[in-house]
Simulated scan of single mutants.
Amino acid sequence: MSPFAEPEHPSITTSDENWDWDGDIPELTAEELATMRPAREALPPDVFAALPSRSGQPEATPHQELVTLRLDSEVVEAFRATGPGWETRINSILALAIRPLARNLDVRRRSSSGRSDKRVN
C-alpha cells in the first residue's frame, strides 16, 4: 500500500473532471487577486447574510470598551478551557455581578440629587 493516500473529493457534488487530481491548477496572479472583492460587496445581501460567520470573536457591540485587565492566572485558564467566546462569558458574569452595585449607586444618586433620572444600568 502506498504511503500517499489519494486526495478525497471536497464534496460529493464535485465531479472527477472538476477535481484537481494532479495539482496543476495555477495560483492566482496579482492581477486576478486585484480584481477580487469581499463577499459582502460581491454577493447579494440576502446570500451574504445566509453565510456562516467565520470570525472567532463576536463583533463588539457599540457600548463595549476595549480595556486591559489583570486577572489571576487560574481565572483565565478556567475561562479559556471553556472554549471560544471565553472573553464574552467573562463579560456576562461581570455584568451580572455589578447589578447589585448598580442598584446601590442608583439609590445613592437619587438620594443625593433628589432626582431619579440618573440611573446606572
Score class of each variant (00 low, 15 high):
1 M>K: 08
4 F>H: 08
8 E>I: 04
9 H>Q: 06
11 S>R: 05
12 I>F: 11
14 T>I: 15
14 T>C: 15
14 T>Q: 14
15 S>K: 14
15 S>D: 08
16 D>L: 08
19 W>I: 04
20 D>E: 04
22 D>V: 12
22 D>N: 14
24 D>I: 06
25 I>G: 00
27 E>M: 12
27 E>Y: 04
29 T>V: 06
32 E>V: 04
34 A>G: 04
34 A>R: 03
36 M>T: 02
38 P>E: 10
39 A>F: 02
41 E>M: 10
43 L>N: 01
45 P>W: 01
45 P>F: 01
46 D>I: 09
47 V>M: 13
49 A>P: 01
49 A>M: 04
50 A>P: 01
50 A>R: 08
51 L>P: 03
52 P>V: 08
53 S>M: 05
55 S>A: 14
56 G>K: 14
57 Q>L: 09
57 Q>N: 07
59 E>R: 14
62 P>Q: 06
66 L>C: 00
68 T>I: 04
69 L>Y: 05
70 R>Y: 12
72 D>L: 11
73 S>M: 10
73 S>H: 13
74 E>N: 15
75 V>N: 03
76 V>I: 15
77 E>F: 03
78 A>V: 05
78 A>D: 12
79 F>Q: 00
79 F>N: 00
80 R>C: 04
80 R>M: 13
81 A>Y: 06
82 T>Y: 02
82 T>N: 03
82 T>L: 13
85 G>T: 02
85 G>I: 01
86 W>H: 04
89 R>T: 06
91 N>Y: 00
93 I>T: 09
95 A>R: 14
98 I>A: 06
100 P>W: 06
102 A>G: 12
102 A>D: 07
103 R>N: 07
104 N>V: 08
104 N>Q: 13
104 N>A: 14
110 R>P: 00
110 R>S: 15
112 S>A: 09
112 S>E: 07
113 S>M: 09
114 G>L: 05
116 S>W: 05
116 S>D: 14
117 D>S: 12
119 R>P: 00
119 R>M: 09
119 R>F: 04
120 V>H: 10
120 V>R: 08
121 N>W: 06
